[in-house]
Design a protein around this nucleic acid. Structure first.
Lengths: 144, 144
DNA sequence: TCCTTTGATGCGAATGTTTGCAATAAGGAA
DNA sequence: TTCCTTATTGCAAACATTCGCATCAAAGGA
């Protein structure tokens, strides 16, 4: 399902240059399937070549996010994950206790987002954000 | 409206010790009215005394958040803000372009949160999260 | 009051991420 | 193809935040 060339074409169409580094980064996250940290992306690339720098990885991932081609979300504890946005915008439920991540489906939140867009004139699509809380298991095992 | 003593009492009731540092931090953010960064909290305290360390500020703010007495939210660009949760949980709309922050009211999102709690058995209250997007002004002035 | 326990602090180092800047190279023009 | 412009890269430093650990002090008991 990955569409590396579609992503690269979109970048080119937006006037960005296609560099070997950008190609590698796009290929890695498009094929990986799950969300990845910038560090993980760099390690995957380092398995093949050393001509990649962590700053470039961060800059490219940010570029993809800004152009709607990937989503970024906060895993808590100062860590950030990225994934291509093949399946459209989404919301992650991040458990504060065990760190588990559950993705919710669009329809569960879209009514509220429609409302926000109407009331506040704020454009929040494509959206990708995290709600931090407690999953069932951690809530049940808590004793305070 | 600040309730420093209420906050401090709650911490004590939870078994935490009340130190001069914690008292100062609670007093500052309770009186400040708006959200603040950890660095800002420390500067305010440093105006009076030097016996405060940034790690302590972070730890105390985290403690308040974990106990539902304050909320933390991501301003984008790797910065985090804190505020006492006098007015209950809330959601911030953060403009990716100009950085403006708008707080939305509970009712605009609560139906969706109810739904999430039912469907995913995930406890997301008291909630405090940010939705990043574009405010009207920045959307209008964008030319891409 | 003084003592004891153990949670909190300060420090410095580590981590994750961003930024400034000089060097490099992508893509268009000639 | 070669050249030129300027976006992109790599590097190192800066920044925001977290962590480990030795020291300190809050709170309760004697």
């Amino acid at each position: 399902m990955p569409h590396c060339h579609t992503y690269l074409k979109k970048l080119r169409d937006h006037g960005y240059r296609i560099t070997p580094q950008r190609e590698m980064i796009v290929k890695i996250i498009a094929h990986y399937g799950r969300h990845m940290s910038a560090e993980e992306v760099m390690e995957k690339i380092r398995e093949k070549t050393s001509s990649i720098n962590i700053a470039t990885v961060y800059r490219t991932l940010d570029l993809l996010v800004e152009n709607g081609l990937a989503s970024r979300f906060d895993l808590g504890n100062g860590k950030t994950a990225y994934a291509t946005s093949e399946h459209g915008p989404h919301v992650h439920l991040v458990c504060k206790h065990c760190g588990s991540v559950t993705e919710i489906t669009e329809s569960d939140i879209s009514a509220s987002l429609d409302r926000i867009e109407d009331l506040y004139d704020f454009d929040c699509r494509p959206y990708h954000f995290s709600i931090h809380g407690l999953c069932r298991d951690c809530r049940d095992s808590k004793t305070d």
